[in-house]
Design a protein around this nucleic acid. Structure first.
Lengths: 185, 185
DNA sequence: GTCTATAGCTAGATAGAC
DNA sequence: GTCTATCTAGCTATAGAC
């Protein structure tokens, strides 16, 4: 076998970059080829299912990222709750480039996007919520309260990303992350 | 002059329907023609600037809606604050079809969408915030607090729309509107 | 596994009849 | 003002050489 020119991770990062900036319909295969450093035909060799399969792979890649950098961090029994929270929020801040990037779940949440990827988007959001629910319980919230707080945390993140970009006030995202930290202390 | 087959308002509603469901890149002129009841060439007669101009017109139409159904309602000196708030929240609930529809600002907030329509999106969001800031002052918040509450209100609305669709929990949007009402009472 | 070249199609946009 | 017919460019996807 001839060696791969581009590693899986590098490939995913390139696809992710374009898909969340332009959305599913806006991201052309030429865009994706340029961003990854592979030609269109090579992308089809890696993903015979075309753009849809590439997007599914990216969502899987993101799910793994959330698992490792949010879920595992927030539920790590070796660390105190406060430290876990701060680390997870740092990771979230980096994921969205301090509010400058768009969330892939949102970018794919068009009518057709939800039809194609709705299950993966839902699973990703549920993972987020499960992680923050566990954290809430660890800081002595009861389960009901903790679930509500976790949902509100996701709402805050998603909402702040939209509003901060729309208003062109980048600091708004950071303020929202601070408010979230407040909620769990 | 030959009479218009489709009224301006009906035209805007058709364009809005498609644009917020599919986004700017996902909405084809065929889609837009079907939704409005006009043929492609007729759409170009009305909007020589093409899809971009159609989208600008829709954003203007939405701005007028926000002005009339949110700003004017929330600042109506003839009504008590509580009544104004309830009416505005009812209008917002209807605008987004109880959480089932996507916000046009969000649908257009891709990389290219923000380049083309960023100014109109920003103005629309600022109008929202101005309206809720005024309401906060009327229920005796100081200006600083009121501004923060207004921004959080917009974050809640935008975030709840995304999360409720993503989780497929429609009731989440209604709950968020109830939380907003709580904030001003 | 990656590439160049290209097929087949649909997109946005226009010409010109009515 | 609206329509049918059509242009060109760009799209997704594939064939086949290396």
């Amino acid at each position: 076998m001839r060696p791969q020119k581009v590693e899986h991770k590098q490939l995913m990062e390139g696809l992710l970059l374009v898909l969340r900036a332009k959305g599913y319909d806006g991201a052309s295969l030429s865009d994706l080829a340029t961003a990854t450093g592979l030609k269109k035909a090579s992308l089809y060799h890696r993903f015979p299912g075309g753009k849809q399969q590439m997007t599914e792979a990216v969502l899987e890649y993101v799910a793994e990222w959330v698992e490792a950098n949010i879920f595992a961090v927030l539920t790590d029994p070796a660390q105190p709750a406060k430290k876990r929270l701060n680390l997870a929020l740092q990771n979230i801040d980096a994921l969205y480039h301090r509010g400058k990037s768009i969330c892939i779940f949102r970018a794919l949440s068009t009518h057709s996007g939800l039809e194609l990827f709705g299950q993966q988007i839902r699973a990703g959001m549920e993972k987020y919520i499960m992680a923050f629910t566990r954290l809430g319980e660890d800081v002595k919230m009861d389960l009901e309260t903790s679930k509500k707080a976790a949902v509100q945390t996701l709402i805050d993140i998603q909402g702040a990303l939209i509003v901060s970009k729309g208003l062109q006030q980048q600091d708004l995202f950071g303020e929202t992350l601070a408010n979230i930290a407040e909620r769990y202390s």
